[in-house]
Design a protein around this nucleic acid. Structure first.
Lengths: 103, 103
DNA sequence: ACCTCACATTGAACTTTTTCGATAGGTTAA
DNA sequence: TTAACCTATCGAAAAAGTTCAATGTGAGGT
């Protein structure tokens, strides 16, 4: 299995949870600290921390520490890469010019 | 939890498996019958059938029966919807004009 | 120094997903 | 009508993901 599929799948897996997809949407309005995000969900603090970790590890979100708070925001690079990958695997390739595989 | 996140997350969850992401990529060269897809993976036939079912159920892929074979191909509508959703939740919204939520 | 606050980590229970072998259903070929 | 072929479904086992309470960590405030 090509590493490129595994890396991209990690991002999609992260977005595969409705709460995490909603968190990414929330961050489109700008960075938010964890406590603000937590207010919007009926989950424990440790659960949110786990979700944020996954979003950061897949490269879609970045965290920034300021004092005792952590602010999260979109990672423009991670988002661009994911968008590109999605377009790559979903756009029709004439004459079967598959860049990743030869089928 | 808004239904729109749940529906979109189902697609991302489907793409969250590297094999399924690879299958979607394979289909960008045009429709393929299940047996051709199966050749490319070291998995059982029933496992592939399960993967294809998930890809179809989330709306990203469509199946077509012809004789004893089943041909799978991209669903242009499902792909367009998913792309739109991804753009919605990842594009910066000035002045916090969040369409889905008010944060 | 001590306490509180914000967040991360750990460990365990629970749920979901993945996978395969076995089997069923429908199609084509002999 | 058999038999072979292709795919879907079922049931069970294994793997992975989710969640929370408890605890750890590190920054500020008293």
């Amino acid at each position: 299995m090509d590493k490129i599929y595994i890396d991209a799948s990690r991002v999609f897996k992260a977005l595969g949870d409705p709460r995490r997809a909603m968190i990414v949407d929330m961050l489109s309005c700008g960075e938010l600290c964890a406590c603000k995000i937590l207010e919007k969900f009926d989950i424990s603090q440790s659960t949110l921390s786990h979700h944020m970790k996954l979003l950061c590890e897949c490269g879609l979100v970045v965290g920034r520490n300021e004092g005792k708070r952590t602010y999260y925001s979109h990672s423009a690079e991670g988002i661009a890469k994911t968008k590109q990958f999605f377009c790559d695997i979903t756009s029709d390739k004439e004459n079967c010019i598959c860049r990743r595989n030869k089928f």
